[in-house]
Design a binder for these strands. Structure first.
Lengths: 221, 221
DNA sequence: GAATAAAACGAACGGTCGTGCTATTCTGTC
DNA sequence: GACAGAATAGCACGACCGTTCGTTTTATTC
Protein backbone atom coordinates (compact mmCIF):
# COMPACT_ATOMS: atom_id res chain seq x y z
CA UNK A 1 0.00 0.00 0.00
CA UNK A 2 2.86 2.30 0.70
CA UNK A 3 3.69 1.58 -2.87
CA UNK A 4 0.18 2.38 -4.01
CA UNK A 5 0.11 5.55 -1.98
CA UNK A 6 3.41 6.58 -3.41
CA UNK A 7 2.19 5.99 -6.93
CA UNK A 8 -0.92 7.93 -6.17
CA UNK A 9 0.98 10.95 -4.90
CA UNK A 10 3.28 10.79 -7.85
CA UNK A 11 0.29 10.67 -10.16
CA UNK A 12 -1.20 13.74 -8.54
CA UNK A 13 2.11 15.52 -8.84
CA UNK A 14 2.50 14.63 -12.49
CA UNK A 15 -1.05 15.59 -13.38
CA UNK A 16 -0.56 18.97 -11.77
CA UNK A 17 2.83 19.30 -13.37
CA UNK A 18 1.33 18.67 -16.77
CA UNK A 19 -1.14 21.48 -16.36
CA UNK A 20 1.62 23.85 -15.34
CA UNK A 21 3.83 22.68 -18.19
CA UNK A 22 0.96 23.20 -20.59
CA UNK A 23 0.73 26.83 -19.60
CA UNK A 24 4.31 27.73 -18.85
CA UNK A 25 6.27 25.26 -20.88
CA UNK A 26 8.41 22.41 -19.71
CA UNK A 27 11.18 24.82 -18.77
CA UNK A 28 8.82 27.18 -16.99
CA UNK A 29 7.82 24.36 -14.70
CA UNK A 30 9.54 24.97 -11.36
CA UNK A 31 9.65 22.71 -8.36
CA UNK A 32 8.61 25.45 -5.97
CA UNK A 33 5.51 26.37 -7.94
CA UNK A 34 4.63 22.77 -8.46
CA UNK A 35 4.96 22.02 -4.76
CA UNK A 36 2.74 24.95 -3.92
CA UNK A 37 0.14 23.82 -6.44
CA UNK A 38 0.15 20.28 -5.11
CA UNK A 39 0.19 21.46 -1.51
CA UNK A 40 3.41 20.02 -0.23
CA UNK A 41 6.93 21.15 0.49
CA UNK A 42 9.57 21.59 -2.16
CA UNK A 43 11.83 18.99 -0.65
CA UNK A 44 9.01 16.54 -0.05
CA UNK A 45 8.05 16.71 -3.66
CA UNK A 46 11.62 16.75 -4.79
CA UNK A 47 12.23 13.38 -3.16
CA UNK A 48 9.92 11.72 -5.68
CA UNK A 49 12.24 12.49 -8.54
CA UNK A 50 15.93 12.31 -9.10
CA UNK A 51 16.03 16.00 -9.83
CA UNK A 52 14.53 18.55 -12.08
CA UNK A 53 15.67 16.83 -15.26
CA UNK A 54 13.95 13.62 -14.29
CA UNK A 55 10.79 15.49 -13.36
CA UNK A 56 10.69 17.13 -16.77
CA UNK A 57 11.24 13.82 -18.47
CA UNK A 58 8.51 12.18 -16.41
CA UNK A 59 6.12 14.98 -17.33
CA UNK A 60 6.84 14.53 -21.02
CA UNK A 61 6.37 10.79 -20.67
CA UNK A 62 3.04 11.29 -18.96
CA UNK A 63 1.97 13.72 -21.64
CA UNK A 64 2.88 11.22 -24.32
CA UNK A 65 0.98 8.45 -22.58
CA UNK A 66 -2.03 10.70 -22.24
CA UNK A 67 -1.83 11.45 -25.92
CA UNK A 68 -1.66 7.80 -26.87
CA UNK A 69 -4.55 6.96 -24.57
CA UNK A 70 -6.73 9.80 -25.79
CA UNK A 71 -5.90 9.85 -29.47
CA UNK A 72 -4.15 6.81 -30.85
CA UNK A 73 -5.50 3.90 -28.86
CA UNK A 74 -9.20 4.63 -29.33
CA UNK A 75 -8.58 5.29 -33.01
CA UNK A 76 -6.86 2.00 -33.56
CA UNK A 77 -9.93 0.04 -32.59
CA UNK A 78 -11.87 1.75 -35.37
CA UNK A 79 -12.22 0.00 -38.72
CA UNK A 80 -9.06 -0.09 -40.75
CA UNK A 81 -8.51 2.57 -43.36
CA UNK A 82 -10.03 5.97 -43.67
CA UNK A 83 -12.45 5.65 -40.74
CA UNK A 84 -9.51 5.02 -38.48
CA UNK A 85 -7.70 8.09 -39.76
CA UNK A 86 -10.77 10.24 -39.35
CA UNK A 87 -11.18 8.99 -35.78
CA UNK A 88 -7.55 9.72 -35.07
CA UNK A 89 -7.81 13.29 -36.29
CA UNK A 90 -11.07 13.81 -34.47
CA UNK A 91 -9.57 12.58 -31.22
CA UNK A 92 -6.49 14.66 -31.83
CA UNK A 93 -8.40 17.90 -32.21
CA UNK A 94 -10.53 17.13 -29.19
CA UNK A 95 -7.44 16.34 -27.19
CA UNK A 96 -5.85 19.67 -28.14
CA UNK A 97 -8.99 21.42 -26.98
CA UNK A 98 -9.21 19.60 -23.67
CA UNK A 99 -8.78 22.57 -21.39
CA UNK A 100 -9.04 20.33 -18.39
CA UNK A 101 -5.80 18.48 -18.96
CA UNK A 102 -4.15 20.90 -21.37
CA UNK A 103 -5.10 24.40 -20.28
CA UNK A 104 -2.20 25.88 -22.20
CA UNK A 105 -2.05 23.75 -25.29
CA UNK A 106 -0.05 20.72 -26.26
CA UNK A 107 2.94 20.07 -24.04
CA UNK A 108 4.75 18.15 -26.72
CA UNK A 109 4.40 20.82 -29.38
CA UNK A 110 5.53 23.51 -26.97
CA UNK A 111 8.39 21.35 -25.74
CA UNK A 112 9.52 20.83 -29.32
CA UNK A 113 10.15 24.51 -29.71
CA UNK A 114 11.71 24.81 -26.29
CA UNK A 115 14.23 22.01 -26.55
CA UNK A 116 14.98 21.95 -30.24
CA UNK A 117 18.34 23.59 -29.71
CA UNK A 118 19.20 21.99 -26.40
CA UNK A 119 20.69 18.55 -26.93
CA UNK A 120 19.99 16.08 -24.16
CA UNK A 121 17.53 13.49 -22.93
CA UNK A 122 14.57 15.85 -23.22
CA UNK A 123 15.24 16.62 -26.83
CA UNK A 124 15.86 12.97 -27.59
CA UNK A 125 12.59 11.97 -26.03
CA UNK A 126 10.52 14.61 -27.79
CA UNK A 127 12.12 13.76 -31.09
CA UNK A 128 11.42 10.08 -30.69
CA UNK A 129 7.85 10.65 -29.52
CA UNK A 130 7.06 12.76 -32.54
CA UNK A 131 8.76 10.43 -34.95
CA UNK A 132 6.76 7.54 -33.53
CA UNK A 133 3.59 9.52 -33.97
CA UNK A 134 4.38 10.32 -37.57
CA UNK A 135 5.26 6.72 -38.26
CA UNK A 136 1.88 5.74 -36.87
CA UNK A 137 0.14 8.18 -39.15
CA UNK A 138 2.03 6.79 -42.09
CA UNK A 139 1.10 3.25 -41.07
CA UNK A 140 -2.55 4.19 -40.79
CA UNK A 141 -2.39 5.81 -44.20
CA UNK A 142 -0.77 2.73 -45.69
CA UNK A 143 -3.57 0.62 -44.28
CA UNK A 144 -6.04 2.94 -45.97
CA UNK A 145 -4.18 2.33 -49.20
CA UNK A 146 -4.32 -1.42 -48.66
CA UNK A 147 -8.02 -1.17 -47.99
CA UNK A 148 -8.44 0.68 -51.29
CA UNK A 149 -9.72 3.73 -49.49
CA UNK A 150 -6.76 5.72 -50.70
CA UNK A 151 -5.26 5.49 -54.15
CA UNK A 152 -2.40 3.07 -54.22
CA UNK A 153 0.25 5.46 -55.45
CA UNK A 154 -0.29 7.70 -52.45
CA UNK A 155 2.89 8.97 -50.84
CA UNK A 156 2.09 8.15 -47.23
CA UNK A 157 5.06 10.15 -45.98
CA UNK A 158 3.78 13.22 -47.74
CA UNK A 159 0.32 12.53 -46.39
CA UNK A 160 1.56 12.33 -42.82
CA UNK A 161 3.68 15.42 -43.31
CA UNK A 162 0.74 17.44 -44.56
CA UNK A 163 -1.60 16.23 -41.86
CA UNK A 164 0.88 17.02 -39.15
CA UNK A 165 1.46 20.46 -40.62
CA UNK A 166 -2.24 21.15 -40.54
CA UNK A 167 -2.43 20.12 -36.91
CA UNK A 168 0.48 22.41 -36.08
CA UNK A 169 -1.28 25.17 -37.97
CA UNK A 170 -4.48 24.50 -36.11
CA UNK A 171 -2.74 24.62 -32.77
CA UNK A 172 -0.97 27.83 -33.69
CA UNK A 173 -3.96 29.67 -35.13
CA UNK A 174 -6.31 28.61 -32.41
CA UNK A 175 -4.03 29.19 -29.49
CA UNK A 176 -1.77 32.05 -30.43
CA UNK A 177 -3.84 33.90 -32.95
CA UNK A 178 -7.20 33.05 -31.40
CA UNK A 179 -8.56 32.64 -34.88
CA UNK A 180 -12.25 31.73 -34.57
CA UNK A 181 -12.09 30.14 -37.99
CA UNK A 182 -9.30 27.76 -37.07
CA UNK A 183 -11.68 24.83 -36.80
CA UNK A 184 -13.25 25.60 -40.14
CA UNK A 185 -9.94 26.01 -41.92
CA UNK A 186 -8.53 22.86 -40.45
CA UNK A 187 -11.61 20.90 -41.40
CA UNK A 188 -11.39 22.13 -44.96
CA UNK A 189 -7.68 21.47 -45.24
CA UNK A 190 -8.04 18.01 -43.81
CA UNK A 191 -11.02 17.34 -46.05
CA UNK A 192 -9.02 18.41 -49.06
CA UNK A 193 -6.17 16.19 -48.03
CA UNK A 194 -8.50 13.21 -47.76
CA UNK A 195 -10.04 13.97 -51.10
CA UNK A 196 -6.69 14.12 -52.82
CA UNK A 197 -5.66 10.91 -51.10
CA UNK A 198 -8.84 9.14 -52.07
CA UNK A 199 -9.49 9.94 -55.63
CA UNK A 200 -7.35 10.89 -58.51
CA UNK A 201 -6.57 14.46 -58.13
CA UNK A 202 -3.41 14.43 -60.18
CA UNK A 203 -4.03 10.77 -61.01
CA UNK A 204 -1.13 8.84 -62.41
CA UNK A 205 -2.51 5.88 -64.31
CA UNK A 206 -6.07 4.75 -64.37
CA UNK A 207 -7.88 7.99 -64.37
CA UNK A 208 -7.24 9.67 -67.70
CA UNK A 209 -10.14 7.96 -69.44
CA UNK A 210 -12.48 9.21 -66.79
CA UNK A 211 -11.32 12.76 -67.04
CA UNK A 212 -11.61 13.07 -70.74
CA UNK A 213 -13.77 16.06 -70.51
CA UNK A 214 -11.53 18.97 -69.89
CA UNK A 215 -9.22 19.35 -66.88
CA UNK A 216 -6.70 20.86 -69.21
CA UNK A 217 -3.26 19.47 -68.58
CA UNK A 218 -1.33 21.53 -66.10
CA UNK A 219 2.38 21.57 -65.64
CA UNK A 220 1.93 19.40 -62.56
CA UNK A 221 5.30 20.61 -61.27
CA UNK B 1 28.17 61.07 -33.01
CA UNK B 2 27.28 60.18 -29.50
CA UNK B 3 23.91 59.42 -30.96
CA UNK B 4 25.42 57.36 -33.75
CA UNK B 5 27.67 55.51 -31.38
CA UNK B 6 24.79 54.77 -29.07
CA UNK B 7 22.70 53.44 -31.90
CA UNK B 8 25.59 51.39 -33.05
CA UNK B 9 26.09 49.78 -29.68
CA UNK B 10 22.40 49.13 -29.38
CA UNK B 11 22.40 47.54 -32.81
CA UNK B 12 25.25 45.25 -31.84
CA UNK B 13 23.43 44.33 -28.66
CA UNK B 14 20.19 43.60 -30.48
CA UNK B 15 21.87 41.55 -33.18
CA UNK B 16 23.58 39.45 -30.58
CA UNK B 17 20.38 39.23 -28.57
CA UNK B 18 18.53 37.93 -31.60
CA UNK B 19 20.99 35.11 -32.06
CA UNK B 20 20.66 34.14 -28.42
CA UNK B 21 16.88 34.40 -28.58
CA UNK B 22 16.89 32.22 -31.66
CA UNK B 23 18.63 29.47 -29.77
CA UNK B 24 17.27 29.85 -26.27
CA UNK B 25 13.97 31.56 -26.81
CA UNK B 26 12.91 35.05 -25.89
CA UNK B 27 12.54 34.00 -22.26
CA UNK B 28 15.84 32.18 -22.21
CA UNK B 29 17.57 35.42 -23.13
CA UNK B 30 19.23 36.72 -19.98
CA UNK B 31 20.93 40.04 -19.50
CA UNK B 32 24.01 38.48 -17.97
CA UNK B 33 24.57 36.10 -20.85
CA UNK B 34 23.87 38.79 -23.37
CA UNK B 35 26.33 41.15 -21.72
CA UNK B 36 28.98 38.46 -21.74
CA UNK B 37 28.33 37.73 -25.41
CA UNK B 38 28.53 41.40 -26.34
CA UNK B 39 31.55 41.96 -24.14
CA UNK B 40 30.27 44.52 -21.72
CA UNK B 41 28.99 44.69 -18.19
CA UNK B 42 25.48 43.77 -17.19
CA UNK B 43 24.70 47.23 -15.88
CA UNK B 44 26.24 48.96 -18.86
CA UNK B 45 24.07 46.96 -21.19
CA UNK B 46 21.04 47.27 -18.97
CA UNK B 47 21.16 51.07 -19.26
CA UNK B 48 20.28 50.85 -22.93
CA UNK B 49 16.85 49.45 -22.17
CA UNK B 50 14.19 50.24 -19.68
CA UNK B 51 14.36 46.74 -18.29
CA UNK B 52 14.18 43.18 -19.36
CA UNK B 53 10.67 43.54 -20.75
CA UNK B 54 11.71 46.35 -23.04
CA UNK B 55 14.75 44.40 -24.18
CA UNK B 56 12.57 41.44 -25.12
CA UNK B 57 10.17 43.68 -26.98
CA UNK B 58 13.02 45.37 -28.84
CA UNK B 59 14.38 41.99 -29.84
CA UNK B 60 11.03 40.90 -31.23
CA UNK B 61 10.70 44.17 -33.09
CA UNK B 62 14.13 43.73 -34.62
CA UNK B 63 13.29 40.18 -35.60
CA UNK B 64 10.10 41.34 -37.26
CA UNK B 65 11.92 44.08 -39.16
CA UNK B 66 14.49 41.57 -40.30
CA UNK B 67 11.72 39.32 -41.52
CA UNK B 68 10.04 42.09 -43.46
CA UNK B 69 13.33 43.17 -44.99
CA UNK B 70 14.36 39.67 -45.96
CA UNK B 71 11.04 38.17 -47.00
CA UNK B 72 8.23 40.59 -47.65
CA UNK B 73 9.87 43.67 -49.07
CA UNK B 74 11.89 41.96 -51.81
CA UNK B 75 8.86 39.87 -52.73
CA UNK B 76 6.62 42.86 -53.16
CA UNK B 77 8.74 44.25 -55.96
CA UNK B 78 8.16 41.08 -57.97
CA UNK B 79 5.38 41.00 -60.55
CA UNK B 80 1.91 40.90 -59.10
CA UNK B 81 0.18 37.57 -58.69
CA UNK B 82 1.67 34.12 -58.47
CA UNK B 83 5.29 35.16 -59.11
CA UNK B 84 5.12 37.42 -56.10
CA UNK B 85 3.79 34.63 -53.93
CA UNK B 86 6.45 32.23 -55.12
CA UNK B 87 9.12 34.82 -54.35
CA UNK B 88 7.69 35.38 -50.92
CA UNK B 89 7.75 31.69 -50.09
CA UNK B 90 11.23 31.29 -51.51
CA UNK B 91 12.53 34.17 -49.40
CA UNK B 92 10.71 32.82 -46.39
CA UNK B 93 12.31 29.40 -46.59
CA UNK B 94 15.72 30.90 -47.18
CA UNK B 95 15.24 33.22 -44.23
CA UNK B 96 14.33 30.31 -41.96
CA UNK B 97 17.52 28.57 -43.05
CA UNK B 98 19.76 31.57 -42.49
CA UNK B 99 21.93 30.14 -39.79
CA UNK B 100 23.88 33.36 -39.61
CA UNK B 101 21.07 35.44 -38.22
CA UNK B 102 18.80 32.66 -36.97
CA UNK B 103 21.04 29.90 -35.64
CA UNK B 104 18.17 28.44 -33.65
CA UNK B 105 15.21 28.95 -35.92
CA UNK B 106 12.58 31.60 -36.17
CA UNK B 107 12.34 33.84 -33.15
CA UNK B 108 8.74 34.74 -33.85
CA UNK B 109 7.55 31.17 -34.18
CA UNK B 110 9.32 30.19 -30.99
CA UNK B 111 8.05 33.26 -29.19
CA UNK B 112 4.52 32.38 -30.22
CA UNK B 113 4.70 29.18 -28.26
CA UNK B 114 6.45 30.81 -25.35
CA UNK B 115 4.09 33.70 -24.80
CA UNK B 116 0.79 32.30 -25.97
CA UNK B 117 -0.44 31.88 -22.40
CA UNK B 118 1.21 34.96 -20.95
CA UNK B 119 -0.87 38.05 -21.58
CA UNK B 120 1.08 41.24 -21.93
CA UNK B 121 2.90 43.45 -24.41
CA UNK B 122 5.00 40.59 -25.73
CA UNK B 123 2.02 38.47 -26.55
CA UNK B 124 0.21 41.43 -28.06
CA UNK B 125 3.14 42.21 -30.29
CA UNK B 126 3.64 38.66 -31.51
CA UNK B 127 -0.05 38.30 -32.19
CA UNK B 128 -0.17 41.49 -34.21
CA UNK B 129 2.99 40.69 -36.14
CA UNK B 130 1.63 37.33 -37.20
CA UNK B 131 -1.78 38.67 -38.05
CA UNK B 132 -0.17 41.32 -40.22
CA UNK B 133 1.85 38.67 -41.97
CA UNK B 134 -1.20 36.55 -42.66
CA UNK B 135 -3.10 39.55 -43.92
CA UNK B 136 -0.25 40.23 -46.31
CA UNK B 137 -0.40 36.68 -47.60
CA UNK B 138 -4.12 37.02 -48.11
CA UNK B 139 -3.60 40.28 -49.94
CA UNK B 140 -0.99 38.73 -52.20
CA UNK B 141 -3.34 35.84 -52.91
CA UNK B 142 -6.17 38.21 -53.74
CA UNK B 143 -3.91 39.99 -56.19
CA UNK B 144 -3.19 36.65 -57.82
CA UNK B 145 -6.93 36.15 -58.15
CA UNK B 146 -7.32 39.59 -59.69
CA UNK B 147 -4.53 38.77 -62.11
CA UNK B 148 -6.38 35.60 -63.11
CA UNK B 149 -3.50 33.47 -61.88
CA UNK B 150 -5.75 31.92 -59.28
CA UNK B 151 -9.36 30.92 -59.80
CA UNK B 152 -11.71 33.64 -58.73
CA UNK B 153 -13.65 31.65 -56.18
CA UNK B 154 -10.48 30.98 -54.23
CA UNK B 155 -10.84 31.39 -50.47
CA UNK B 156 -7.78 33.53 -49.82
CA UNK B 157 -8.11 33.07 -46.06
CA UNK B 158 -7.98 29.34 -46.49
CA UNK B 159 -5.03 29.72 -48.83
CA UNK B 160 -3.09 31.79 -46.32
CA UNK B 161 -4.01 29.40 -43.54
CA UNK B 162 -2.74 26.40 -45.46
CA UNK B 163 0.44 28.11 -46.56
CA UNK B 164 1.24 29.24 -43.06
CA UNK B 165 0.57 25.74 -41.75
CA UNK B 166 3.01 24.31 -44.26
CA UNK B 167 5.66 26.79 -43.18
CA UNK B 168 5.09 25.86 -39.56
CA UNK B 169 5.35 22.23 -40.53
CA UNK B 170 8.53 22.89 -42.45
CA UNK B 171 10.07 24.69 -39.51
CA UNK B 172 9.08 21.91 -37.15
CA UNK B 173 10.18 18.99 -39.28
CA UNK B 174 13.43 20.58 -40.31
CA UNK B 175 14.45 21.92 -36.94
CA UNK B 176 13.04 19.55 -34.39
CA UNK B 177 12.80 16.33 -36.30
CA UNK B 178 15.79 16.99 -38.53
CA UNK B 179 13.83 15.45 -41.37
CA UNK B 180 16.06 15.51 -44.47
CA UNK B 181 12.97 15.39 -46.61
CA UNK B 182 11.44 18.50 -45.12
CA UNK B 183 12.37 20.60 -48.14
CA UNK B 184 10.93 18.05 -50.52
CA UNK B 185 7.69 17.68 -48.62
CA UNK B 186 7.23 21.39 -48.27
CA UNK B 187 7.88 21.93 -51.95
CA UNK B 188 5.30 19.32 -52.87
CA UNK B 189 2.72 20.63 -50.44
CA UNK B 190 3.20 24.18 -51.61
CA UNK B 191 3.10 23.04 -55.21
CA UNK B 192 -0.14 21.23 -54.59
CA UNK B 193 -1.57 24.27 -52.90
CA UNK B 194 -0.69 26.40 -55.90
CA UNK B 195 -2.19 23.87 -58.25
CA UNK B 196 -5.44 23.78 -56.37
CA UNK B 197 -5.51 27.54 -56.25
CA UNK B 198 -4.86 27.81 -59.95
CA UNK B 199 -7.13 25.26 -61.50
CA UNK B 200 -10.30 23.59 -60.42
CA UNK B 201 -9.25 20.77 -58.18
CA UNK B 202 -12.25 20.11 -55.99
CA UNK B 203 -14.39 22.26 -58.17
CA UNK B 204 -17.79 22.98 -56.84
CA UNK B 205 -19.95 22.61 -59.86
CA UNK B 206 -18.58 20.96 -62.94
CA UNK B 207 -16.87 17.85 -61.57
CA UNK B 208 -19.40 15.30 -60.22
CA UNK B 209 -20.22 13.64 -63.52
CA UNK B 210 -16.60 12.76 -63.97
CA UNK B 211 -16.26 10.58 -60.91
CA UNK B 212 -19.10 8.22 -61.65
CA UNK B 213 -17.09 5.05 -61.55
CA UNK B 214 -16.75 3.74 -58.04
CA UNK B 215 -15.75 5.76 -55.00
CA UNK B 216 -18.23 3.67 -53.08
CA UNK B 217 -19.95 5.78 -50.50
CA UNK B 218 -18.19 5.61 -47.18
CA UNK B 219 -19.76 6.44 -43.91
CA UNK B 220 -17.88 9.69 -44.04
CA UNK B 221 -18.46 10.10 -40.31
C1' DG C 1 43.02 71.85 -20.77
C1' DA C 2 38.95 72.39 -17.88
C1' DA C 3 33.99 71.48 -17.79
C1' DT C 4 30.28 68.71 -18.93
C1' DA C 5 27.47 64.95 -20.44
C1' DA C 6 27.11 60.27 -22.01
C1' DA C 7 28.42 55.58 -21.59
C1' DA C 8 30.15 51.78 -19.26
C1' DC C 9 31.55 49.65 -15.05
C1' DG C 10 31.60 47.13 -10.35
C1' DA C 11 29.53 45.82 -6.42
C1' DA C 12 25.62 44.85 -4.03
C1' DC C 13 20.57 43.80 -3.08
C1' DG C 14 16.43 40.98 -2.80
C1' DG C 15 14.44 37.15 -4.92
C1' DT C 16 14.00 32.56 -6.86
C1' DC C 17 15.98 28.64 -8.62
C1' DG C 18 17.57 23.51 -7.86
C1' DT C 19 19.43 20.76 -4.43
C1' DG C 20 21.22 18.56 -0.40
C1' DC C 21 20.89 17.42 4.89
C1' DT C 22 18.49 16.53 9.00
C1' DA C 23 14.44 16.07 11.53
C1' DT C 24 9.68 14.89 11.88
C1' DT C 25 5.41 12.59 10.85
C1' DC C 26 2.92 8.93 8.95
C1' DT C 27 1.88 3.90 8.11
C1' DG C 28 1.79 -0.77 8.33
C1' DT C 29 3.93 -5.06 11.06
C1' DC C 30 4.86 -7.75 14.86
C1' DG D 1 2.34 -0.15 21.82
C1' DA D 2 7.11 -0.41 20.19
C1' DC D 3 9.42 -0.45 15.90
C1' DA D 4 11.07 0.14 11.06
C1' DG D 5 10.85 2.30 6.94
C1' DA D 6 8.85 5.35 3.84
C1' DA D 7 6.98 9.92 3.06
C1' DT D 8 7.16 14.54 4.01
C1' DA D 9 8.77 18.85 6.13
C1' DG D 10 12.20 22.48 7.50
C1' DC D 11 16.13 24.79 6.67
C1' DA D 12 20.26 26.35 4.53
C1' DC D 13 23.52 26.49 0.62
C1' DG D 14 25.27 28.31 -3.68
C1' DA D 15 24.16 30.02 -8.18
C1' DC D 16 21.95 33.04 -11.08
C1' DC D 17 18.30 36.26 -12.03
C1' DG D 18 16.83 41.47 -12.88
C1' DT D 19 17.71 45.71 -10.91
C1' DT D 20 19.81 49.72 -8.48
C1' DC D 21 23.34 52.94 -7.36
C1' DG D 22 27.58 55.32 -7.00
C1' DT D 23 31.78 55.62 -9.49
C1' DT D 24 34.90 55.72 -13.32
C1' DT D 25 35.94 56.01 -18.02
C1' DT D 26 35.21 58.13 -22.49
C1' DA D 27 33.80 61.63 -25.62
C1' DT D 28 32.33 66.44 -26.69
C1' DT D 29 32.43 71.32 -26.24
C1' DC D 30 34.21 75.66 -24.86
Amino acid sequence: MSEAKALNTKTVILDTAMKIASRWGIEGLTIGELAKAVGMSKSGLFAHFGGKDQLQLDVLKSATENFVDAVMRPAFVEPRGEPRIRAMVKNWIEHLNDEGSLPGGSILIAASVEVDDKPGPLRDFVQKAQNDLIKNIERAAQIAVDEKHFRNDLDVEQFAWSLYSFVLGYHHFKRMLEDPKADLHFKRSFGGLLEVARSGAIPKKERPKLVTKKTKKRKSA
